[in-house]
Design a protein around this nucleic acid. Structure first.
Ligand SMILES: [Mn+2]
Ligand SMILES: [Mn+2]
Ligand SMILES: [Mn+2]
Ligand SMILES: [Mn+2]
Lengths: 153, 153
DNA sequence: ACTATAATTTAGCAGACACTAAGTTTTGGA
DNA sequence: TCCAAAACTTAGTGTCTGCTAAATTATAGT
């Protein structure tokens, strides 16, 4: 006989290695919100001259109270400062996180575009994907872009 | 004059569109755990013949109590069934989620490998990336693989 | 100057996911 | 058959991220 569906060689990794992957993923999830807020604050400061909590709320699609609570955590963690009724600002640490986040975001978007995604989807997907691409993955994306931009197609 | 640093064209999208991206991301995050559990249960059933809560805990890197609570939610959502001291099983709905998750997982891994990532990093990153790639992105990955596999380099 | 409006904060609540520490229950080997 | 070990459940906590509703507070237009 032969037709037995061997069901793809899905051999499971050693439990510890397997767990490490999920642990890494949980860590990425934890920092994702901080990165997005800080990146958005940097963008607003640059584009609008100020980053108001209302605008963060509108652009993040959450209630103002949610922004207040999240910003309090960012402040506690030394990433953000607030001047009442004058908007949000980034600490040096916050600026560092913001520029790293922005660089990653832009790299991921460029990569997705290079692979054939339309601009809007590239932006939308990048918002999530950026938090889960390791340094190695980002390096691979960059290599691909370099090669691709040199010799398209 | 001219030398004014235009500071990269970071033009912000319309607030509503911007919010939609984050909302989409939050939705993906919410389903990620369910997908990972169900995918793992399917794998264990296939590879080991049974999917015990202890093994899920070990492989997910969490406490048994956490698995119990999460499985309760999956059960509530109609994805999983449990036979006490006999392990976990998937409902038809759960099996559907599992095979979709598996297909996506494998596609993402193959794609990352094709882009030059080493196997271990590809697997690790895929665990997070898979939950944030839209259908369009997956289609683009598949196209890339088809082309790449036909004419490598 | 006043005051309506907008921005922000506070309070109270809820659900998802983690954890530790204690029970229970089942199983399987002696 | 018995019982210790393994598996599973329950109880009690804590944090994060959301929400609504109800204050506050500041700004800006008249
Ligand atoms: Mn993001
Ligand atoms: Mn981003
Ligand atoms: Mn995953
Ligand atoms: Mn997976």
């Amino acid at each position: 006989m032969s037709g037995m569906p061997r069901a793809s060689p899905r051999s499971l990794p050693p439990p510890e290695d397997h767990a490490a992957r999920f642990t890494q993923q949980r860590e990425a999830d934890r920092s994702a919100i901080a990165e997005d807020y800080v990146e958005l604050i940097a963008d607003l400061l640059q584009e609008e001259g100020e980053a108001r909590a209302v605008d963060i709320a509108r652009r993040m699609g959450v209630a103002q109270a949610t922004v207040a609570a999240t910003v309090a955590r960012l402040q506690r963690d030394g990433l953000v400062e607030t001047k009442p009724y004058r908007g949000l600002f980034l600490t040096p640490a916050g600026q560092a996180v913001a520029s790293a986040a922005r660089a990653r975001h832009e790299l991921v978007v460029r990569f997705l575009l290079a692979v054939g995604l339309d601009p809007e989807t590239a932006e939308a997907d990048a918002e999530g994907l950026e938090h889960h691409a390791s340094e190695k993955a980002l390096a691979a994306f960059a290599r691909f872009l370099a090669k691709h931009e040199a010799d398209p197609k």
